[in-house]
Amino acid sequence: MTPYEDKTIKDSLREERKKLKDMNGKDKLWYIWEYYKIPIISVFVSLFLIISIASAIYSNRFETALNCVILNSQFTSESTSPDDYFDKGFRQYINLPEDTKIEVNHSMSLSFEESAMNDFTYAELAKLSAMITSKELDVMIGRKDSIDHFGKMDGFTDLKEILSPEEYEKVKDKIYFVTSDETGQKVAAGILIDEADFEKKTGLLIDGPILSVMINSTHKDTAHDLIRYMFGL
């Protein structure tokens, strides 16, 4: 048996500490990385997996009641926020339990003018399209250009199918119609929101906001509740 084979773990650790003690800072970093990079990487990968799994398990505990995206908005207030209006006010309005999520994304910006398109806007459009295709999105609030873009492709539910005749009568002057490219028919694709009122309640400024419900929304009942909440129906 060689002297190396007869070493205890304690002896090995003592030798490693002595080596590191005699090195300067740069050499210490090089030595640690050169000889211990595999265990270091393994630890980081393990931690990442543990955190990812824990996060997924935690998120899966919560059911999503509504997923809404607000496009091309500008935050203008310090006294109110979208969370106050949607995740607190609307949650209370429909008596939604705390373990059910209302997700509102107001950070996305889109442009459909060719001259304004760039890598960022293409990426945002791809992200939004993926959300729609995967049925992750229920409600879109945006400017006329956004609603026209997706409405022409039959992306929105006809609000006549969601609102009762009495409710529709109350908001008929606010209904926004889009002509389908496929059928040529006008569809009640959205409902006009008062710009000043929306900014006052959410702190978000949008040029002529329109609310639309996605054609493949899996939470149309909650989307209907949101319309009733916003318009006092």
Rank of each mutant, 00 (worst) to 15 (best):
M1N: 01
T2D: 01
D11P: 00
R14S: 02
R14L: 05
L20E: 02
K21W: 12
G25M: 11
K26D: 11
D27G: 02
E34L: 10
E34C: 06
I38V: 12
I40W: 14
F44P: 00
I50M: 14
A54D: 00
A56Y: 02
A56L: 05
S59F: 12
A65F: 11
N67W: 14
C68M: 09
C68A: 12
L71A: 01
S73C: 09
F86H: 04
R91A: 15
Y93C: 03
D99K: 02
K101V: 01
K101S: 11
N105M: 08
S109E: 09
A116E: 15
M117T: 05
N118L: 09
S129T: 13
E136T: 06
V139Q: 08
V139F: 11
M153D: 03
D154T: 00
D154M: 04
K160D: 05
E166Y: 04
Y168L: 15
Y168G: 11
K172Y: 06
K172L: 09
K174H: 13
T183R: 00
T183Y: 07
G184A: 03
V187H: 05
A188M: 06
A188C: 05
A188G: 03
A189E: 04
L192G: 07
A196H: 07
A196P: 02
K201C: 03
T202Y: 04
G203Y: 01
M214G: 08
S217A: 08
H224D: 10
R228I: 01
